[in-house]
């Protein structure tokens, strides 16, 4: 366990962007809240909706998530390639650290550490922004930001999203690592073309589009849709209808459906196999 701590620390040393980028986004958003124009139309007359505040907070979270997805993909694609390119693998391999530990530490960094860092940055900056906005904006909106329920829900949503995403995106992450461990050049092409080839082959020979559908679900949807009921649709509706009742995030979570979906576990199993292949490749030392 101690070795994993050092391996993760090593990833943070090497990839300082892991915390610099979310910190920069946070600072930018805070600056925007400080100096930008805050103009919120009360959605209709009547009671102010907690939904509007929640939507704003969730939207901030979404900005972090979007940047994080792009960064994580790049991180994974580089993870086993960089050490081969600069030959530092000859140093890392002189340490009593197995290839499995190394690969798993990088995978854990992408699926758990990076999301936690973004979560912390999003939480902190959202808190500051909510404070600024509530001072500058109309009172009804400010109030809608300070519902303890919303904050608790926000935390729960992040944690839930991190856990389900780790499972849901495991095959994608593992595939990127495999390419990173294997390809000698053109990593981008190698990461994209074989899956596209599979989609094409499936259509060609079986006339079905299950692989394409799964890729679409994971890449274009951008979050584990199966793990939620009607999300983020419910939030938008809540904000627009200015319902007095706060959005109930708990009702959006669908852990049982997620756990019961075969796509979840077939994907996870495929991911595990790809991770095993990446470990094997690193152990056998593919030269650049």
């Amino acid at each position: 366990m101690n070795t994993y701590k050092w391996l993760i620390r090593r990833e943070l040393w090497e990839n300082r962007a892991i915390w610099i980028v979310p910190a920069a986004i946070g600072v930018l958003l805070v600056l925007a809240a400080l100096f930008g124009r805050v103009e919120v139309d009360a959605p209709g007359a009547g009671a102010p909706g907690h939904g509007a505040g929640a939507l704003l907070l969730f939207a901030f979270g979404a900005i972090f998530l979007l940047v994080m997805s792009a960064y994580s993909a790049w991180y994974l694609l580089d993870s086993l390639y960089a050490e081969r390119k600069d030959r530092s693998i000859l140093f890392w391999k002189s340490m009593p650290v197995s290839d499995a530990m190394t690969v798993l530490s990088k995978l854990a960094t992408a699926l758990i550490v990076i999301p936690l860092v973004y979560f912390a940055a999003a939480d902190l900056s959202t808190l500051i922004i909510a404070f600024i906005v509530s001072l500058r904006a109309s009172s009804w909106f400010g109030v809608s930001l300070w519902s303890p329920g919303i904050w608790l829900q926000l935390q729960a949503l992040w944690i839930y999203l991190i856990v389900t995403s780790a499972i849901w995106f495991l095959p994608v992450a593992a595939w990127l690592m495999l390419v990173s461990a294997w390809a000698k050049r053109a990593l981008m092409l190698w990461s994209i073309l074989p899956p596209l080839g599979l989609v094409w082959a499936e259509r060609m020979f079986f006339g079905t589009n299950e692989i394409g559908h799964q890729l679409w679900e994971r890449l274009v949807t951008g979050y584990p849709e199966a793990a939620f009921h009607d999300f983020p649709g419910a939030l938008v509706v809540a904000a627009q209808t200015a319902t007095a009742a706060p959005v109930d995030v708990w009702k959006l979570l669908a852990p049982v459906d997620f756990a019961a979906s075969p796509a979840t576990w077939i994907g996870a199993a495929l991911g595990a196999a790809l991770v095993a292949a990446a470990i094997k490749l690193r152990a056998r030392g593919i030269e650049l």
Partner: peptide
């Protein structure tokens, strides 16, 4: 093994 294999960012 070989010279200068320590990673440059370290």
């Amino acid at each position: 093994a070989d010279v200068a294999v320590l990673p440059s960012w370290l």
